[in-house]
């Protein structure tokens, strides 16, 4: 089975369309969207609609999705993020709110666990970027693979033994074999707002039969996305950061 996994669209319609178009040619059977459909970007309703209409797609709640529904306060976020959330709250349609309100925090399917930030405290939104939180994540589930997003940086953490971990950053489009039976935490990167200094969208296809991870970077029209941010009256730095991938 080829499972498409993507996260952190952040209402960037340009990036989402390019990513889905790229994946459409790669024989995907199912899709999991790891959350943060909204926030930062100017097209929350359009992105929600696009993801909702995907065939065989499951979607999780991210911290921006929850904040846009006032389920958590946006005032703990950065200034630009808070501004964007308050803007999104005004723009969200009833259908979009209903869709976001029904999203689960965590999914356990077969030998995989999906969560936006981490599986041990999904609404704590703690980044899993180091050994401490990686070990907590492994302890929180018996699944072999843990799929996350949230940090906007593609990453593979392999458990070598009980306390030994191997953190591997992912650059560009790359393939990983995961047929060694080891447990892994896999961060699929971000579609709409990369932060690994590569402005391209990032998503992942997990080929379960071949036990292979396929990370893809997809170029999209960043200018158009940044212009839309400006036009929407959102903080302009949200557009400029897209060019740098930070």
């Amino acid at each position: 089975m080829r499972l498409m996994i993507f996260a952190d669209i952040h209402a960037n319609l340009e990036a989402l369309q390019s990513t889905l178009s790229h994946a459409a040619d790669r024989g995907v059977h199912r899709t999991v969207c790891m959350g943060d459909l909204v926030g930062y970007g100017p097209h929350p309703n359009e992105c929600i609609e696009l993801v909702r209409d995907l065939k065989n797609c499951r979607c999780l709640a991210g911290n921006h999705d929850v904040a846009a529904l006032w389920e958590t306060s946006p005032y703990g976020m950065s200034s630009a993020a808070k501004e964007a959330i308050l803007w999104t709250m005004d723009k969200l349609t009833a259908d979009s709110r209903e869709f976001l309100g029904a999203l689960p925090d965590r999914l356990d399917i077969a030998d995989m666990t999906f969560a936006h930030a981490n599986p041990y405290n999904p609404r704590g939104w703690r980044y899993v970027l180091n050994r401490k939180y990686a070990l907590r994540s492994f302890a929180a589930t018996g699944s072999r693979h843990i799929l996350i997003g949230h940090s906007h940086r593609p990453l593979v953490i392999t458990r070598k033994h009980l306390l030994g971990l191997d953190l591997q950053t992912v650059s560009g489009s790359i393939r990983f074999k995961v047929d060694d039976g080891r447990r892994r935490i896999i961060n699929c990167g971000s579609v709409g707002q990369s932060r690994d200094r590569d402005p391209r969208s990032c998503y992942l296809i997990f080929d379960t039969r071949r036990q292979r991870l396929e990370f893809y970077r997809v170029a999209y029209n960043v200018e158009k996305a940044a212009e839309a941010i400006r036009d929407a009256g959102l903080p302009p730095e949200l557009g400029t950061r897209l060019f740098k991938g930070i």
């Binding site: 089975m1 080829r2 059977h29 199912r30 077969a110 030998d111 379960t208 039969r209």
Partner: peptide, 14 residues
């Protein structure tokens, strides 16, 4: 359960 097919799609492919 871990030795079984994990996904229906994998079962069908084989």
């Amino acid at each position: 359960i871990k030795s079984r097919y994990q996904w229906v799609e994998d079962l069908w492919e084989d």
